[in-house]
Amino acid sequence: MSAPFFKYGMFGDDTSLIVAFITGIGFGFFLERAGFGSGRKLAAQFYGYDLTVFKVMFTAIITAMLGLYYLSVIGYVDLSLVYVSPTYLMPQIAGGLLLGFGFVIGGYCPGTSCVAASTGRIDGIIYLAGIVVGILIFGESFSLVENFYNSSAMGSITLPQVTGMSYGLIVFLVVLMALGGFMFAGWAEKKWAHIRPEQG
């Protein structure tokens, strides 16, 4: 085992900030390459004629998931040292729904709105301002939501633990599901192609 490098003490906190900056450049670069600096392109996901959001997201998920899985199988990465954020089921359901509303109303999510703002989209900049206000509202009303926020705590549980299936089998099933989703996306884009608005 030699990875994650940071957890094995190969470099310190200050260097990790440089790693963060470079990682972010890669993240932002590929988001923009996919077309995610455009609110119209992102919102198209919810009208069926362009399912780029689904395709990019699931390609990224299976790439990272397969890579991490094989690197852990050959003993290069210690999977137990990769941080899995803990599950709080009810607040995550509520937060997910709110986020979905915000996505189709505003046209972005936080990461994509950064890319939109840096490529000149005024709506992306306004959206970022909205996020800041939303976080401020949450912070200021924290005492009201604190109990709910900390409810249904389940720890860092994963699908293999919950289902009792092996990690490898779940990885395989997720890949199958994604491939099925990609085929469905191709079909759906044809079915709803007539909805695609004129450019301009």
């Binding site: 954020s85 509520a94 997910g96 986020l99 979905g100 994509t112 959206y127 909205g130 939303g134």
Partner: peptide
């Protein structure tokens, strides 16, 4: 855009992350 951003901000805090940290 502004209203969507507000909902997104509240939702992401409630869920302890957004599309990047949670979904991806």
């Amino acid at each position: 855009a502004f209203s969507g951003g507000i909902l997104m901000g509240i939702g992401a805090k409630l869920a302890r992350g957004c599309t990047s940290g949670q979904a991806l």
